[in-house]
């Protein structure tokens, strides 16, 4: 028997319905209704940001190695639900072979960032030469709560490509899922839920980009806003980000992977530590 699934949102490790009580239908290429999903409001954004902020302390203080283990665990759990994801990708209108490929890439991407979790800090930090008696070094610290607008196409791979590097670096995120293809994102929330990812680290909302993105951009407690190209929404969003000097990243290649996806969402802290004398390469620090 075919049971029509109700897709809910994911906030603070729970699956509530939108506080607005609104829904919108998702249809396949023939116009048949596949499911109703939540049409989230800015109050859901508010709740999700509160959950993300609450989770930030604990998540950012986990050891890098432990975060890597948890990301790898997500990959394992995702792989275990291969059939469901491929079915949903196909339902949303791409071919079986493309769906296969997108799914495989998604798992690969998780493993890729799981590997980076305890390595990016060493690669991107530095000891800096200075002309005074100081040992001067720069290290990375996560920014905090990141707002993410997931790409419309590649609804699974695109989501993972933006969310995972952010949490890899110790941030917590609030994601507006693909508006037209949201099914995989809600199912991905179920994967996260069973993967030792603490509640609130990833919060996933479904709904209109035009409604959720401005709410994320204007929120004073969101530290950065990440998206693929959003066309004419770009400029008003950038203006909204000014109020709290929010970092704004637009990735034209949002289905790619790379170290910069992790390090972009890190602040650099530079420390000047007094030392007795300026040493050479073999100084005594």
């Amino acid at each position: 028997m075919n049971i029509l699934k109700t897709y809910k949102i994911y906030i603070g490790g729970a699956f509530p319905r939108t506080e607005s009580g609104r829904y919108y239908p998702i249809t396949d290429s023939k116009g048949n209704t596949l499911a109703n999903v939540c049409l989230s409001s800015r109050k859901d954004v508010r709740n999700a940001v509160v959950a993300a902020r609450k989770a930030f302390g604990g998540w950012s203080e986990k050891t890098a190695f432990n975060r890597g283990q948890i990301l790898y665990r997500i990959a394992e759990m995702l792989d275990g639900r291969k059939g469901q994801f491929i079915d949903e990708l196909v339902l949303q209108g791409i071919s079986k072979s493309k769906a296969d490929k997108e799914f495989q890439q998604s798992v690969d991407r998780l493993v890729y960032y799981a590997g980076w979790a305890d390595k990016y800090q060493q690669i991107a930090s530095s000891v800096n030469p200075v002309s005074s008696s100081h040992f001067n070094f720069s290290a990375l610290e996560p920014m905090g709560v990141i707002g993410i607008i997931a790409p419309q196409e590649n609804s699974l791979l695109g989501l993972i490509s933006l969310v995972i590097p952010a949490i890899c670096g110790g941030n917590t995120v609030v994601v507006a899922a693909s508006e037209s293809h949201p099914l995989c994102s809600v199912t991905f929330a179920e994967v996260l839920h069973s993967s030792d990812v603490p509640g609130g680290v990833v919060n996933i909302l479904t709904g209109k980009v035009a409604e959720l993105a401005p709410a994320l951009a204007a929120h004073m407690d969101v530290n950065a806003l990440v998206s693929s190209d959003l066309g004419e929404l770009q400029k008003p969003l950038a203006l909204s980000c000014v109020e709290n000097l929010k970092r704004r990243f637009t990735y034209m290649n949002s289905d790619q992977q790379g170290l910069n996806f992790v390090t972009d969402l890190q602040e650099v802290k530079t420390t000047w530590h007094p030392i007795e004398s300026i040493g050479g390469a073999t100084s005594s620090y």
Binding site: R53, A215, H219, N244
Partner: peptide, 9 residues
């Protein structure tokens, strides 16, 4: 202000 606030401020 119409903006959701942060405890940072």
């Amino acid at each position: 202000t119409g903006l959701y606030q942060s405890s940072d401020y």
